[in-house]
Simulated assay, not measured.
Amino acid sequence: MSIAAVAPAPTVRSASPATSSAKLRAVPEGTEARGFVLYVGVDEAKAAAAGTDLVTLVEALRRLTSDLVPGAQTHAAVALAPRGVGGRDVDVVRLALQDPAALARQRDVEEPSPDVVEGVVIDLSRKRVLLNEQTAPLTYKEFELLQYLVLREGRTVARAEIISALWPAPDADAPNERTIDVHVRRLRSKLGDYQDIVRTVRGTGYRFDRHADVVVRHTHRGPSPDF
């Protein structure tokens, strides 16, 4: 999709809640639609060839949203992928931004994984951790915390950096540098006998230490899981 300028916003008639709900797919009882995600598949070269760039596209879409719904909140995330990755741009974007449906489809077409050996398997493509062939009950945020450290293996990561990366402002649930220790402690407790792979560097932050019995799996045919 290429956008060089925003056309005047069309006149939109307000719809009753019942009419609006009818246009949406059924949602579980007790829930409500709070927004949507629009994946845009276009790389910098294609945007430049159309006489624009990704920043201009983002700003144009934001202005259009503001024109249609004053006060609407927006958040944009750029999808990063290894240079030369094949496939449709929009599919690469969905994988990079961890779209659940795209991830599930990718798991269906991947070859079966080799037999799991004793120890720790940190599977970044499937977003899971196996401890002696048993899945560790990590929450989404606990896995994100572990993944962030794994992808920076050997480097000590400051608490402030972790908070900024995993709880982007303005996140009301973002911890402070003291309570981030609680998140790390919960993660370690679920790693059991292997909790020392997440090491505390006193006065600085945390570091992932790979042992001989730790395997980290990446998906080389898709984009990086970290963005």
Rank of each mutant, 00 (worst) to 15 (best):
I3H: 14
T11F: 12
S14K: 00
S20W: 04
R25T: 12
R34W: 08
G35Q: 15
F36K: 04
F36W: 09
L38C: 05
L38S: 05
D43K: 00
A45L: 08
G51D: 05
G51W: 00
T52N: 00
L54Q: 07
V58M: 05
L64P: 03
L64T: 08
L64M: 11
L64F: 12
A72C: 14
V85W: 03
V85F: 04
V92R: 14
V93F: 01
L95H: 02
A96P: 01
P100R: 07
A104R: 10
P112H: 04
D115N: 02
V116K: 02
G119Q: 09
V121T: 07
R126H: 06
R128P: 03
L131D: 06
T139H: 02
Y140T: 15
Y140F: 05
Y140Q: 14
L149E: 03
R155H: 07
A158F: 00
R159G: 15
A169R: 10
D173R: 12
R178L: 11
I180W: 00
I180M: 11
V184N: 13
L187K: 09
G192M: 06
D193T: 14
Y194L: 11
Q195H: 14
D196H: 05
D196P: 02
T200L: 14
V201P: 07
G203H: 02
R207L: 12
R210F: 07
R210E: 14
V215F: 01
H218E: 13
H218F: 00
G222S: 09
